[in-house]
């Protein structure tokens, strides 16, 4: 493991990895895993948005939603292009992979119920993406990825601002405000889960040792909370977290993690859960997993069929 120790030391000192000859096998594997999660997350953010985009209240809202989806596909493209340069068969990954093998967050396996949820999706989930990828953009040791994230960072900020605009304007109407609250009630804790297992349950992280990312799961969760909570409070929306002056940290006011009723999109905050069970829930996938992945693969498969018929 001489190579591993050398590479870890180097990247901690600021060495930028530019190509495969700078990597050991472990680094390459961790990098590919990370980029697969990122690419899948970007791409599978589109189908949930598509479920309500035709409910956009104005043409401008619709154009913005379309622009966001186009951005996400671009972000996915970047991640998969990087994977291909690392020797992955992305064609296979995209069009022949079973739905349950995709690595997008559990939160993206759900249909949205209304336009307001699209706003909350942008404000909370894109904020999670902005937090995670912002950290990678700042710290990652993989040069090609760090450079590619300049574009992503700019666009994610636009997405989360769009969500804030939708939420801000909705809360002016009491009926719509109720919908914002309902959306936040299930999506806020989903947002917390994006950052993964609590630090004290994780023995070591190759992602951090190889500096694919800079901050730990809990640090990133705190970072997300530090802007998500004040924003929601500023528009009179209640969230199950608050800032604790004494520890100078955000504290989650409900058992976290806790059980989730997927059918009704409701957190069972009287039923605390373990991260082990949460991972199991992630792996057993949410209700739209298959449909959403098929939606992504459908065009390529239809084109292939047409090509075969034409021959």
């Amino acid at each position: 493991m001489e190579n591993a120790a050398l590479l870890k030391e180097k990247v901690q000192e600021g060495f930028m990895v530019e190509g495969m000859e700078d990597m050991n096998e472990e680094y390459l594997k961790a990098l590919k895993q990370t980029l697969t999660i990122v690419g899948d997350t970007e791409l599978l953010s589109v189908p949930p948005l598509l479920t309500v985009y035709d409910q956009a209240p104005t043409l401008n809202n619709k154009i913005t939603a379309l622009a966001i989806m186009q951005d996400e596909i671009g972000h996915a493209h970047i991640a998969y292009r990087l994977l291909k340069d690392l020797g992955e068969d992305t064609e296979e990954l995209l069009y022949n992979r079973e739905p349950n093998r995709w690595k997008n967050p559990y939160a993206f396996d759900f249909e949205l119920s209304n336009w307001i949820e699209l706003g909350v999706f942008n404000a909370l989930f894109d904020r999670a993406g902005y937090t995670l990828l912002g950290d990678a953009g700042e710290h990652t040791s993989y040069g090609p990825w760090r450079r590619a994230l300049v574009k992503v960072d700019k666009e994610e900020l636009f997405h989360l601002r769009n969500g804030e605009i939708i939420m801000k304007s909705a809360v002016k109407d009491p009926e719509l405000k109720k919908k914002v609250q309902e959306a936040v009630d299930w999506m806020f804790i989903m947002g917390l889960e994006f950052f993964g297992v609590a630090d004290n349950l994780k023995s070591r992280s190759q992602q951090i040792e190889y500096k694919l990312k800079g901050r730990t799961n809990d640090e990133l969760r705190q970072k997300w909370l530090s802007t998500a909570v004040p924003f929601c409070e500023s528009i009179g929306i209640k969230v199950p977290a608050h800032y604790d002056e004494a520890t100078e940290k955000f504290v989650i006011d409900v058992p976290f993690p806790c059980k989730f009723d997927a059918e009704n999109k409701k957190w069972l905050t009287d039923q605390p859960d373990t991260w082990e069970n949460v991972i199991k829930r992630f792996k057993s996938r949410g209700p739209q997993n298959q449909q959403f992945v098929e939606r992504i693969q459908q065009g390529a498969k239809e084109l292939e069929k047409l090509r075969n018929e034409a021959v």
Partner: peptide, 12 residues
Amino acid sequence: RKPKGLFAGKGA
């Protein structure tokens, strides 16, 4: 010119 790989020649 290209960056000289950290493990150039050694293989990953």
